[in-house]
């Protein structure tokens, strides 16, 4: 056991700045991906609830396809595949785009379930006391939807954080890729990948706890 821990004592001061920077990159990638997937998810939700049959059909096909294809295939398609037809992204853009296109499907499903959970009477009552449709959505429906979906949204956020590790395979310089570079430099893959894993844990675990705290009262 002391043999396993020895490199951390020896190289800890060299490793930590590298890992800290990579953690920041992973966090930024995750936040950008999540923000964009909420935007795309809301756009999908609008398609799903629209009166146009074509838009609804598009949303259904999109959600089914993107939930059935692994993120890695999407990332490779965006980064390595699209240049073949003349569309080129840099690695970071491809990663953010790939993550958000994939997670938009999940986010829109969450929103839809959240909207379904609000009884119709809420909207009717808001309209009856004189709220405009926009007001009743913004002040009555939306706050309740947010309350319902907050916990699963945080779970989705943590999955996105974990899946952002796949961006390393299209050369985005986040935690795993930094870890790989360090592993070749120091020849200590076990210690370094364990450290990388703990870095993810430090970011993700607080959110996991938070989502459970938020879910508990809603379940009662």
């Amino acid at each position: 056991m002391t043999g396993f821990l020895q490199p951390y004592v020896e190289y800890g001061s060299e490793w930590w700045p590298l890992l800290a920077e990579a953690m920041l990159n992973t966090a930024l990638l995750t936040i950008a991906g999540f923000a964009l997937s909420v935007v795309f998810g809301l756009a999908l939700l609008l398609c799903q609830t629209s009166s146009s049959k074509a838009l609804r059909g598009f949303a259904t096909v999109y959600v089914t396809t993107l939930r059935g294809v692994p993120l890695l295939a999407i990332l490779f398609l965006l980064y390595f595949g699209l240049p073949g037809v003349g569309i080129t992204f840099d690695a970071l853009t491809a990663a953010v785009l790939g993550l958000s296109l994939c997670f938009a499907a999940q986010v829109s499903e969450l929103f839809r379930a959240g909207l379904k959970a609000i009884p119709k009477g809420q909207r009717e009552a808001a309209m009856a006391v004189g709220f405009t449709p926009v007001q009743s959505f913004t002040f009555i429906i939306l706050p309740q939807v947010v309350r319902v979906i907050l916990s699963p949204m945080i779970v989705t956020f943590v999955s996105l954080l974990k899946d952002s590790s796949l961006a390393s395979l299209i050369t985005v310089n986040e935690l795993v890729l930094t870890g790989r570079a360090m592993a070749t430099e120091y020849f200590l893959p076990l210690q370094i990948y364990v450290a990388v894993g703990l870095c993810y844990f430090m970011i993700g675990w607080p959110f996991s706890i938070l989502s459970r705290r938020l879910a508990a009262p809603a379940a009662r």
Partner: peptide
């Protein structure tokens, strides 16, 4: 459960495949 659910699969695979090989 917490350790396996909050760390990416890719990292676990690297620990098993590259990490254990060093032992």
């Amino acid at each position: 459960v917490e350790l396996l659910r909050n760390i990416p699969a890719l990292t676990h695979l690297f620990i098993l495949y590259f990490g254990l090989a060093s032992l």
